[in-house]
Design a protein around this nucleic acid. Structure first.
Lengths: 206, 206, 206, 206
DNA sequence: GATGAATGAGGATTCATTCAT
DNA sequence: CATGAATGAATCCTCATTCAT
């Protein structure tokens, strides 16, 4: 992989974008290395010079995408705000900033979490697990739980909040597949998201 | 399709199980019709005598799975109970009974809702949509909303309940992939599910 | 074959028409026995009960078509007229009467004379040869050659007349593929044909 | 296609000859790409690396064959001789030179003009049409018609000459299928052809 | 006679990966 | 580093023919 990272950035990007786009469009199995090299304007051999096989390439892009989002979050999040609803609110907005910049990555990450292809299933699921465990702790380990009503089963409440955010995000993604990211009124989306968070807040907070 | 349905049940089941297993294991694109006929112990040609192509076979299994679950629900649900939490509780238990009987179908349905393969994406998404619209109405159209607290945004509350059930179910599915359906303590699972429902109930009900 | 000929005429015709239509539309190799039985509304097995294989069926239809045309000619031709140009004129008109009645046979006979499929090539070519030798003699064996100019190589002149008629017929067939038999102005076609014959007549006759 | 044309000539020829031979022997539909790669001693994949599918390969060979013959004619014909019978005489001899060199192409071109396979019919017929229109004009556009008898319908006379040449050529081809090109006494054949031309000449010329 | 389920060799085509240059 | 020709196993699918009923 170091071989690849020593390339000049412009070429790296051409390859990354081509590959992400193809995987996002067709899923792992259907994606064609042929299309990738054509779009990236490199030769067949070169791709396999940098990545030992298709799977390696996919894993590399997986790691890269996760890393990009996490870096954004860890750098720009207001860690002083310990309120879980504000935390989710912020994370959602930071994620969206990344996706606005790398539109193909947005679709690629959907593939990451739904990909069923047998060749990568295990590894991807393992990594998803790892990501959940590791990053969840970092992103939500410092939350102030004192605001929750007494008697509330806090782990379960966290589950509900998390699934609500996921479900809401997924619903928005469906819409984007029909329209495009540009045609979505983001303010409107975030306002709706806030309403869900608000509903959960009055339910769970004192 | 009538051709297939006129077969003796034993052979039908051999083919259905072989196909469902293969699709569940590898997703649409990776699934091999060769493997299916081998497992079902029929000739290559016969599969295509019954189903005009791979896609048709998949769609048939899709419809079959949905139908099996819905039939179970519509026949055995206690429609007198208009409480949404009890409704979800019952549905979950009925679904599980179907899956206990057709273990591969359990995994197949996971594929159904995440499959992205370009060849079937549109048709599957359209069918999922249809299913959601049609069946949701039937399953939840008669719910008694008078128990909800005043001031609660009921559509949003329904969304949260639904996503929570989905999220919980998905989490259980992940566990099954590691263990097997038999090794899971179902009572324990349903007890946990009830706790989530209870938490939402105290939050949303008067 | 006797088995087939003992069938009631209605069923015979259903099978013949279905087969001729399919062969005419797709040529030998591309023609599907499946389509034939579907169109004829008989079972798969029955077709092979009457004809031992696809090739046999084709040969049977070949013989049938030739026979139909020849019978028409031998029965209705005015054998008193020994002029070769009048003979061709009459034959062309009689052929056309057959084709008006069996439009699919018209296209089927085109296939007969152009079919290259390896499985039947030899047999068909041999039969075409046989037909040429045998029937040519019968159709043109009594022609009065005394009207030809002295010094004309009569066999060669006959060749030229024959190829001209063939070439003209083939050109008309091309037109029919674009239009349909009904849309062609037959009087006009025969008038043009007569002009060719007239040109040859002034050239070859005293 | 440029990919293919960059190959060394020896390999190109191995592939072309193998393909032409197979198509000539079996027609379009019956020809097996498997046989072609076996005869050409290349891998299955390579054929489809050069030609995107079987149809493309056929079309390529079609164009190549036509081109070879036309180039020969346009380069070596004596354009000063405006006599139509001499023109035909020359063209026939030049064509035969090409076929002597590529014996398989001789049979392949027969397939070209009789092939009915549904997959290529339209394209081939369109190309045949194009060829007829374009090349006929070039080959016969400068003919001197002043030698024809007054009162002769010249377009019809041209038709007769053309069909006679076609008919004669076709008759010779039939003979080659039984014997081989080497066993034919070409001088004898051309002498016979000249006799036909001579007969037409005394008929149509002053 | 009549059915149509069943066969399986063979069809064209794809594609990740290798390797000589 | 970089190329792209070459591989060949594997893909889905077709179809004439057989045979138990």
């Amino acid at each position: 992989m170091t071989k690849f990272l020593n390339l000049d950035i412009e070429k790296q990007d051409r390859i990354i974008n081509a590959a992400i786009k193809e995987f996002a469009k067709k899923g792992y199995k259907n994606a064609s290395t042929n299309e990738i090299v054509k779009e990236a304007e490199i030769s067949k051999g070169l791709l396999f010079h940098y990545f030992k096989n298709k799977k390696d390439l996919f894993i590399f892009l997986y790691d890269l995408s996760i890393e990009l989002v996490l870096d954004k979050i860890f750098e720009e999040l207001d860690w002083e705000d310990k309120d879980i609803f504000n935390r989710y609110r912020q994370i959602a907005r930071l994620k969206m900033q990344v996706f606005k910049r790398y539109p193909e990555m947005f679709n690629f990450m959907k593939v990451i979490f739904t990909e069923d292809s047998i060749e990568i299933k295990d590894e991807i699921e393992h990594k998803n697990q790892e990501f959940m465990n590791g990053s969840y702790q970092k992103m939500f380990g410092d939350i102030d739980f004192s605001k929750f009503k007494a008697g509330i089963d806090i782990p379960k409440a966290l589950g509900i909040i998390s699934w609500t955010m996921e479900g809401f995000a997924y619903k928005q993604q469906e819409r984007v597949l029909q329209a495009s990211l540009d045609d979505i009124d983001l303010d409107e989306v975030f306002m709706q998201m806030d309403e869900y968070l608000e509903l959960l807040k009055v339910s769970f907070y004192k």
